[in-house]
Simulated scan of single mutants.
Amino acid sequence: MEASSSSCPSQLPPLLSSAEAEQRNWLDLPRDVVSAIFVKVGTIEVLRNARRVCSLWRNVSKDPFIWRTIDMHQLGDLTDSDDILDDMCRLAIDHSSGQLTDITIEEFATDSLLKYIADSTSQLRRLRLIRCYSVTDEGLCAIAEKLPQLEELDISISNLSKVPLETIGRSCPHLRTLKFNIEGYKSPHIECNEDAFAIAGTMPALCHLQLFGNKLTNDGLLAILDGCPNLISLDLRQCFNVSLIGNLGRRCAEQIKDLRHPYDSTADYPFEAEDDYGSFDEDYPSGISDIDILSDYEYDFYEFSGGSPSEFSDYDYYNDY
């Protein structure tokens, strides 16, 4: 009976209220667990809210582990000015204590902020700049030599020219992935191989290349294939001056494992794109048509001695541009 009475609920310690239990659970979490949660929560949320909850969380928010990756894009409904976002980004960089390896910035990056990043870390491996029109050729060139470990560079929608590409190529020997995208359009008709030649001449170790909307021609593409023999993936969507037919089409099929054609679907592309035309995927699921792999001589012979007009309607349409 005594044993029974000793286990009576009335003898147990009083239970915490739900609010007290929730507070105690959060505050009792190990520091490394809180740090891992902050990483998942993301840069903006930690800077704006989490670090203000209590002194413990504010202290944890200064852990350099949290700031090895800084992601400040897709800011949604934030109404902060560029100056405030710049200050927040610099604070995150300071907290990284030289351990920053990966940073993404949308819209508010400047030459000054890039210099601050480059001066704060020599470990940067991934730099992503989205619609950062205030970043100049001179600004990117100035920090290139300070990024010796850079492996991935993503510059999507900018005013930059071939000049920083050449400088990055010469200064960053570990660069394996390059995205240099602009908004694709078919008119006015412009041909320019400067970007392609800069890439081909300075980035022989490149494995992944995206040139969405670029104005390169077949000559530029051929230079890239010659100058970047390690390419595994190549995205040429909305590169309307490129025609993957004949020998060039066959070489692309043989050399590149993951090839996106100029007229392939842009459904998975995160930025604006012209989409008023059919996709190669619809007609040629393998990505290369029978016409593409004909030799140049065979193509001419086939077109003028037996190929029906309907079989070449897509080809004629592409060459109108």
Score class of each variant (00 low, 15 high):
residue 108 F to D: 04
residue 137 D to F: 09
residue 138 E to P: 01
residue 151 E to S: 15
residue 146 K to S: 14
residue 150 L to T: 03
residue 159 N to W: 11
residue 131 R to Y: 08
residue 141 C to M: 13
residue 159 N to F: 12
residue 144 A to P: 09
residue 149 Q to W: 03
residue 104 T to Q: 14
residue 129 L to Q: 06
residue 152 E to Q: 13
residue 158 S to N: 15
residue 110 T to P: 05
residue 145 E to Y: 00
residue 155 I to D: 07
residue 136 T to I: 08
residue 106 E to L: 02
residue 115 K to I: 00
residue 141 C to Q: 14
residue 134 S to T: 02
residue 124 L to W: 04
residue 159 N to M: 12
residue 155 I to C: 15
residue 129 L to H: 04
residue 108 F to P: 06
residue 105 I to Q: 06
residue 119 D to M: 04
residue 134 S to R: 14
residue 111 D to T: 07
residue 138 E to S: 13
residue 137 D to Q: 05
residue 129 L to P: 01
residue 147 L to Y: 10
residue 146 K to L: 13
residue 104 T to K: 12
residue 123 Q to E: 12
residue 133 Y to M: 13
residue 134 S to V: 00
residue 137 D to H: 06
residue 120 S to F: 03
residue 151 E to R: 14
residue 104 T to A: 13
residue 129 L to Y: 05
residue 147 L to P: 06
residue 141 C to H: 00
residue 156 S to M: 08
residue 158 S to I: 06
residue 117 I to R: 03
residue 113 L to A: 04
residue 152 E to F: 03
residue 125 R to Y: 01
residue 145 E to A: 11
residue 156 S to T: 15
residue 143 I to G: 04
residue 143 I to E: 00
residue 144 A to M: 07
residue 131 R to C: 12
residue 112 S to Q: 08
residue 158 S to K: 09
residue 155 I to V: 15
residue 126 R to H: 10
residue 156 S to G: 12
residue 122 S to K: 11
residue 128 R to A: 09
residue 104 T to W: 09
residue 123 Q to V: 07
residue 123 Q to M: 11
residue 110 T to E: 07
residue 137 D to K: 06
residue 120 S to A: 15
residue 108 F to Q: 02
